[in-house]
Write a protein that binds this DNA or RNA. Sequence first.
DNA 1: TTTT
DNA 2: TTTT
Lengths: 140, 140, 140, 140
Amino acid sequence: MSKGINKVILIGNLGADPEVRYMPQGGAVANMTIATSESWTDKSTNQKKEQTEWHRVVIYQRLAEIAGDYLRKGSKVYIEGKLRNREWTDKEGIKRYTTEIVANELQMLDGKQDGQQQGGYQQPAQNNQRQPAGRQNQGR
Amino acid sequence: MSKGINKVILIGNLGADPEVRYMPQGGAVANMTIATSESWTDKSTNQKKEQTEWHRVVIYQRLAEIAGDYLRKGSKVYIEGKLRNREWTDKEGIKRYTTEIVANELQMLDGKQDGQQQGGYQQPAQNNQRQPAGRQNQGR
Amino acid sequence: MSKGINKVILIGNLGADPEVRYMPQGGAVANMTIATSESWTDKSTNQKKEQTEWHRVVIYQRLAEIAGDYLRKGSKVYIEGKLRNREWTDKEGIKRYTTEIVANELQMLDGKQDGQQQGGYQQPAQNNQRQPAGRQNQGR
Amino acid sequence: MSKGINKVILIGNLGADPEVRYMPQGGAVANMTIATSESWTDKSTNQKKEQTEWHRVVIYQRLAEIAGDYLRKGSKVYIEGKLRNREWTDKEGIKRYTTEIVANELQMLDGKQDGQQQGGYQQPAQNNQRQPAGRQNQGR
DNA sequence: TTTT
DNA sequence: TTTT
């Protein structure tokens, strides 16, 4: 049972190909960043403004494999998940905190679902290699 | 116009009374932390587990004043807003990043809307004092 | 896999105790109506207005039993689910259409979780009797 | 102030071009139907199943004009709004009820934002004609 | 730091 | 038919 609601809904574009790694037990973990932006006109200066937020998203298991197989830099996705705060230590030994979205639903929103990319033929195995999940870029 | 969707929905309890400050121009800003927790049974050990997330929420203007007037430590609220990442420098000069929810909708979900609290009579003006918005606890 | 998103989020009060029935195979089905209301001031007449919507909600299986055991007329709930349109024929043989929310998440939002009701002691088994699911009020 | 939450989020495709009409006072009203579908494998028969829901969506004012100008049959959209139940009388004098989503946010999710359509050149003024809002297809 |  |  859960007490309270912790829900995030994002529609945005991937800043890079998802990074897929595998846990020692075999489960997949995908990390990706998603940009959402909003634009408005500043009424005092009458200037157009744009603000982009970059969201750290982590996905597990089967959904992580789907992300690794079908999503690429620039892909537009719908993500639903929850917020999670994580503590880690950087290489200088400084304690840092990161908020990320743990996604439990994912939908591609553009037609590049064939895995085809702008830069010609795409090797589907590229993001699929079983890399150890240990050393990864943590935090932001 | 906005490109993409950046939406957060929370239902949880306040960890403390909201901190309300006023901008130089007079607009109110309320900061609060909201806890959401989920509990489940670990099927391998058959033990009950609970995980609590603490969310930093910031509210502006009229909604901030409502928060300051009606919400207290322990209040259950519905919050809707968007994720915003903010960069700041701590007192050691270390650059830090914080993710917070900028709320644009707020609803009280418990009957303590009279401002009555467990600890006896409550002074409604307490959180209403016009404190300068300058020096505040930043980050987490 | 799902194509598209079909999501409803409601916070409101039950108009009556949930009606719980059991399918021939034993699965529970709970029907309930939930009111959400919004109020505003009509700026042309300066009059306060209020508009209430009544939502038909249906819940299945274990969640339906929880609803039957813990929810009562007046209970405040959070509901998450999807829209479903259903066709049925009334007793005059007229074909009718009803839209309902099929809930997949439910949370009680008030302190009446002990099953205590305003009218004195409450028999918890009352809504629990295994009624046939056949003859029910359909449509609205 | 609103009591309760009444929120719908849809991502789906338009079943037809939006129908835009104008109120006597000049405000635009757009009606459209949006399909969401989910597919799954029936584990008892091992057959693939698909279920499509058709949602009636109504949009007002400036957003209605945007819908009329940029959306076409087949367009993929994100819609956010609220549920509203409406009573009307069909031509046989039978009282009917319809549930629709009143949208307050709309985002196009495919690249056909230039108004270009599959069937050749598209007249942008076509859906823009100021038709009276009186006689419209009501109900479903 | 909340809540059940 | 609910709730404040």
